[in-house]
């Protein structure tokens, strides 16, 4: 009994589990396997990095972990739900409620102000405007952008835009933040700021999955997965000092 209970508890601590994860792209008759059997487990509250050369499959893996895509074979279990069985609307719902995305190119909506951009995920979930504004304002303040609410992305620096994107990712209180090369388009000072914010979020209990090939960014990561040719080449645990 104790053993089963322990197993259950161990199960509970994993927020993401992948089992023999395959993703094969087809172009005509040629099949190109981007992922070839990935097994990984990510704990609640962990800060994970996935690194590897381009073409190693890190973006594909992130898309699967982010419920943007379905695997060709295998399973991705996010917070107890196997996403390969979900319909596209259910995936959207899951992304909206549990996940937050940060992209290399920020991907803000150009014709909206910073505040409006942060509100966007809340529009999808049907939160009333007053509450949206309030939450968005608080989050912009949290990422240090008080006073920039009305600015459009084109009126903000790269670092500021990425901070807006982080505020947007946080707005529905996600359990997991997925960041795809979040500092790829930033100078080193801004990049540092972004990593500090991510670190700070992690300390508050948010699970963070970072995809990068910049090894300067992985200092706060508990574990680093090295990807090569669609396989995990090695997994390195790191001691993180706060």
């Amino acid at each position: 009994m104790q053993l089963i209970e322990n197993l259950k508890n161990e199960e509970k601590q994993w927020i993401i589990t992948t089992i023999d994860l395959w993703k094969i792209y087809k172009s005509g008759k040629i099949e190109y396997p981007a992922l070839r059997g990935i097994n990984m487990k990510i704990r609640k509250g962990e800060f994970i990095a996935i690194v590897g050369p381009s073409g190693s499959g890190k973006s594909t893996l992130l898309n699967l972990l982010g419920a943007l895509d379905r695997p060709t074979k295998g399973k991705v279990i996010i917070d107890g739900t196997d996403i390969s069985k979900l319909k596209s609307n259910e995936l959207a719902e899951l992304r909206n409620k549990k996940l937050g995305f940060i992209f290399q190119t920020f991907n803000l909506i150009p014709y909206m102000s910073a505040l409006d951009n942060v509100e966007v995920p809340m529009i999808a979930s049907g939160i009333p405007p007053k509450e949206r504004k309030e939450r968005a304002r608080k989050l912009l303040e949290l990422v240090g952008l008080k006073g920039f609410e009305k600015n459009r992305p084109s009126e903000l620096s790269g670092g500021q835009q990425q901070k807006v994107a982080i505020a947007r990712a946080l707005v529905n209180n996600p359990q997991i933040i997925l960041a795809d090369e979040p500092t790829g388009n930033l100078d080193s000072k801004s990049a540092n700021e972004i990593i500090e914010i991510l670190h700070d979020l992690n300390k508050r209990g948010v699970t963070i999955i970072l995809v990068t090939h910049n090894l300067n960014l992985i200092k706060y990561c508990h574990r680093v997965f090295w990807l090569k040719d669609g396989l995990i080449e090695k997994e390195v645990e790191q001691n993180v000092k706060d």
Binding site: L68, N89, A92, N96, F101, N107, V120, A124, S125, R168
Partner: peptide
């Protein structure tokens, strides 16, 4: 297209 991709990533459903 990209905006659509972002919206979907942020949890907008097809019907939205």
């Amino acid at each position: 297209t990209r905006e659509i991709g972002v919206l979907k990533a942020l949890g907008f459903k097809d019907r939205n």
